[in-house]
Amino acid sequence: MKRYAKLYWLYAKNHFKVMMEYRMDFLIGVLSVFGQQFAALFFLSIVFRHIESLNGWGFYEILFIYGIAFLGRAIHHIFFDNLWTIGWQYIRTGNLDRILMRPVNPLFQIIAERVQQDGFGQLLIGGSVLWLASNELGMVWSVMDLFVLFVMVLASGMIYIAVNLFFATFSFWMIDSLPVVFAVFSLSDFARYPMTIYSKVIMFVLTYIIPFGFTAFYPAMYFFEGRGFTLFALATPIVAALSLILAYRFWLFGLRAFASTGS
């Protein structure tokens, strides 16, 4: 564990050095993600200029849910972005062979080989939105609440990571599973709204099949009073851990298949 932490730090240090060499790229990347998220928020605020509430949910409540989603996604985006590239950058090119010949966990190497600085934009906007929303909602934060928030954001990030890893693993059998990962990830946009506005089917899918519901809506419910879903909120870290274990198992299964076909 200590060895892996040290290794990650070394990988990351090199990334930051490269990043500093291309300061312009860094800035443009952060700004573009910033713009993207800002557009989504702008759209939301326009909608709320015309309606009082969305199925009983106010603007700042939805903003709060957005904030948690952004922060969770930022963790995934900054540190685990290479999961997207497993198919075309590692399996198809034979780079995975090189990784498998080193005495370090192969998934760790893939993850460590990239830090996506653009995600810092998301982190910034997520933090600001959460702060703004909680102020407007008159929330009072105890140390315990802050700790829970931290755990929830981490769990949210873990679910994004698990879903990404699970569907990227299909690249062992397909030429490239990237389109599948894209399709699945477009579902995560639904999860940034209160789940009660959707039909039972969508709610079921986002809770039990692809648990994006636990990336924002359910964990946010821990902080809202009288809205229900407390059990779901408390289950968030468990769901995150289970998803991650399942995805990692599936990845190991894919690796074994790779060792027998080598394609």
Binding site: L7, Y11, N14, V18, T93, N95, R98, R102, V104
Partner: peptide, 22 residues
């Protein structure tokens, strides 16, 4: 295929390998 790390200087690549192989 390269064993080295594409974006970083050779010296840093060696350092990283030194850690990878302990």
């Amino acid at each position: 295929r390269t064993q080295l790390f594409w974006d970083i200087p050779v010296r840093e690549s060696f350092d990283l390998l030194c850690e990878i192989y302990e």
